[in-house]
Amino acid sequence: MSYMDKTTGIPEQGITPPIPDTGEMPDREWRKDDKTLTNAELTLEEQDWFCDARPTPAKPAWGPVEKFYNWARANSLWILAFGTGCGAIELRPLVTARYDISRLGMQPRPTPRQASVFMIGGYVSIKTLKRIVRSYEQMQGPKFVVAVCSCAINGGMYWDSYNTVKRIDQYIPVDVYVTGCMPRPEAVMAGFSKLKELILAGKAEGQNLYAEKFDWYKANQKQVIKDWNMPDYNW
């Protein structure tokens, strides 16, 4: 099979890549105006239940205060682990006695509302992507995403699967990738240290990125999720 050019990795002819990221908002019929979302896929009754506000980028606090906040954020990472694939099994050694991430101030958190790191553990199928988007949007910012496993980066061994997305960063912003199939707990911890560095440097602004390029992300999500039956943005 030669779908991929061996040397450059660029797919051959006849392939429709997702909408290119040109920075401008694509004109979609589901966008009423710049302020509200239409939630067009929901029934009229359901539209009443959900908020139609768009996410807005949040301004960081005043310099030194933000630095202090970032220090607190970096030292109190609460993880929402989404065990999408086999890589999620690595979270168990992480929280138990051998690698014990709680000494770094991290702890697993069972609800997206309270977590600040979204850990995606493995391949992402379309069905899971729906849940990922929902959980990600329900997290309160600033929120960070760590994608563990090769499958989350480029499809890994599921590169030719009909139901697995490659490149999660086209659907939600990802701060840190951890390679490996599956990565050792040490590698995951190295990923978290990297995330800490990013937060301390004030560079982990995935939430603002998501808010700014919301239309691009939404368009990508809707392109692969064919039965979109949830609100456009469920905070």
Binding site: M1, K6, T8, P11
Partner: peptide, 30 residues
């Protein structure tokens, strides 16, 4: 959920081709 293609386990369904046409690839050096 929401599958619109042909039944996937039929042998004449080319999953690699479908995947390449539907999902974007991360370009890389091989």
């Amino acid at each position: 959920e929401g599958w619109q293609g042909p039944p996937v386990m039929r042998r004449d369904f080319d999953t690699a081709k479908y995947s390449l046409e539907t999902y974007d690839h991360r370009p890389r050096d091989t």
